[in-house]
Design a protein around this nucleic acid. Structure first.
Length: 314
DNA sequence: AATCCATTCAACCGCCTGGGT
DNA sequence: GACCCAGGCGGTTGAATGGAT
């Protein structure tokens, strides 16, 4: 099938932009604002395709673009965000101020990807390249602890997190609770950041006492595959309905829930097989959770965020 | 100095989506 | 619903650059 080109290629310049062209484009955008890209070249006196103009502006000429090398923090963020969004470069770029999707994509493909592969991490799945989850417990550089290429300095900590079956329940408890908190916080911050229209009907977050209770040893089951259900009442579907009380809200915040669609998979895994244990509600955690990409991604981020403070506990 | 090769990154291409008619 | 258009996105390309021989 032959598709009509977005613009007539005849007579249009391609390739590297000259300073003169840049100046024309900048002057035009400053005068008329962004948009109308298809007609912009004619108006601005440029012999370029409108798309090309838009790209040049968005990726290079925009005044808020941060140029130069990526910092360690930016790289870490990039990796974490890639673990969530995959190759959704624009989504990643939105969370890295001053960086463009193109820049991030290039940096990922030329630097990060190679570094991850070198470390035995699959840059697509963020899992170990060989033997997968089976080697999670004895792989010192898996994304189990951190999806970071800068994790050498934390190796001693990750060693401590080779949880035995006895401590893994507590550990997973903690992660599960943090995960639920994270869902709420993420939604809240998105909502607040976009106008705080939903403050009256957000899902309540876990209280400190609930958190402590759920992570305390006294209430921790010994079985490695049981998780307390004290606060795992967050299911992305119910969250969606409880957070958005009417159709207009759903429409407004559709993008928020697309952001956490992966979480739905995780939450739904917890929403089944609730059992009673010592008068407390627990969830039977499917062993395949460790192979659940969403779970592992979130786990990675949580651990990265709290700087492995669990070391002293576990 | 010349050539080759690998790497980087700006730019392009084709496809998709959403809004308007 | 069908069509068109504008804009956005992710994958790919190729010119520029730098290092190795």
């Amino acid at each position: 099938m032959v598709r009509t080109p977005c613009c007539r290629a005849v007579g249009l310049k391609k390739g590297v932009w000259t300073q003169e062209e840049d100046q024309k484009l900048i002057a035009h955008v400053q005068r008329h604002g962004e948009g109308g890209w298809r007609t912009l070249p004619d108006k601005a006196g440029l012999k370029r395709c409108g798309k090309s103009c838009r790209l040049r502006w968005a990726n290079y000429l925009r005044p808020d673009i941060k140029r130069g090398d990526f910092s360690k923090d930016e790289e870490d963020s990039m990796i974490s965000l890639h673990a969530i969004h995959g190759n959704k470069w624009s989504a990643i770029a939105r969370r890295l101020p001053g960086r463009t999707d193109n820049e991030i994509k290039n940096h990922w493909n030329t630097h990060i990807k190679k570094r991850l592969v070198k470390k035995g991490i699959d840059p697509l799945t963020h899992k170990p390249l060989l033997d997968g989850a089976a080697k999670l417990s004895d792989h010192p550089e898996t994304p189990r602890e951190k999806t970071s290429v800068h994790q050498e300095e934390d190796d001693h900590k990750s060693k401590d997190n080779k949880s035995s079956s006895g401590s893994s329940a507590r550990f997973l408890n903690r992660v599960a609770n943090r995960f639920c908190q994270r869902i709420n916080q993420s939604v809240l911050s998105d909502i607040i950041g976009s106008g705080s229209l939903l403050t009256s009907h957000t899902t309540p977050t876990i209280s400190a006492s609930e958190y402590e209770r759920s992570t305390s040893s006294s209430s921790t089951p010994t079985s490695s595959n049981i998780l307390t259900d004290q606060s795992i009442n967050v299911d992305a579907t119910s969250l969606s309905s409880s957070t958005c009380s009417d159709s207009s809200d759903i429409f407004l915040y559709d993008d928020i829930f697309s952001d956490i669609e992966d979480m739905t998979i995780f939450s739904s895994r917890f929403s089944s097989n609730v059992v009673s244990h010592d008068g407390e509600e627990f969830l039977m955690l499917d062993g395949s959770c460790l192979e659940n990409t969403s779970f592992m991604r979130e786990l990675t981020m949580i651990l990265q965020e709290d700087k492995m403070e669990t070391t002293s506990v576990y």
